[in-house]
């Protein structure tokens, strides 16, 4: 006889756990997205210094530097959606990569300590963003599974939760050794 209330209590506890878990997962997705934003800001903040140092040593990279500065300006502007910010970051990444290749023609710049520090910090930020994106995708996948799978799908439909889309992996994430290539190119 006592088994029936125990089973009921167990179901209630597990039900509450699953309900809270679903809400927790949604919050984790929001947090994961904010984390990408923080990393992007950190990376964008490197641009002015990088441009300044490169400008001192190079003569023919003006166009690239202007492009990078413009992209940063756009990304840091008000009312830029997160998707646009990520797209601008990718363009900026490609432009900086091109700049790093050109640096080979400027031995003085290549030997400059400030530049070397910025280069390392840039590489680091690239991997940190990749990690933040992977974390975002992992939290979205976990959230989507909870929304779609029984029995947590019952709570999801009660709360009106919809599935979310993951971020497409960038070329850097697919290759994942690109940071090294950046230096060897």
């Amino acid at each position: 006889m006592i088994i029936v209330p125990i089973i009921v209590i167990a179901f209630v506890i597990i039900g509450i756990g699953m309900y809270n878990s679903l809400i927790g997962k949604k919050n984790q997705v929001t947090n994961a997205f904010s984390a990408i934003d923080v990393m992007l800001k950190k990376r964008f903040d490197l641009i002015p210094n990088l441009v300044e140092v490169v400008k001192q040593y190079t003569q023919y990279e003006g166009d690239t530097l202007t492009k990078i500065t413009e992209l940063r300006g756009k990304a840091m502007g008000a009312n830029v959606s997160e998707a646009d910010k990520l797209a601008l970051d990718q363009q900026m990444g490609a432009a900086v990569k091109g700049l790093m290749v050109s640096v080979e023609n400027y031995p003085d710049l290549k030997a400059n300590t400030n530049f070397l520090n910025l280069q390392s910090t840039w590489t680091e930020s690239e991997e940190q963003i990749a990690a933040a994106r992977r974390n975002y995708n992992a939290t979205v996948t976990t959230y989507n599974n909870a929304v779609m799978m029984f029995p947590s799908s019952i709570f999801a439909s009660m709360l009106g939760y919809q599935t979310m889309s993951v971020l497409e992996s960038t070329a850097e994430e697919r290759q994942n050794v690109n940071a090294k290539d950046l230096f060897n190119s």
Partner: peptide, 16 residues
């Protein structure tokens, strides 16, 4: 940790 909140270890990292 993955399926029931308040139970299990919340520090588990799910990798790809």
């Amino acid at each position: 940790a993955k399926n029931v909140y308040s139970f299990g270890d919340k520090n588990v990292v799910e990798l790809e």
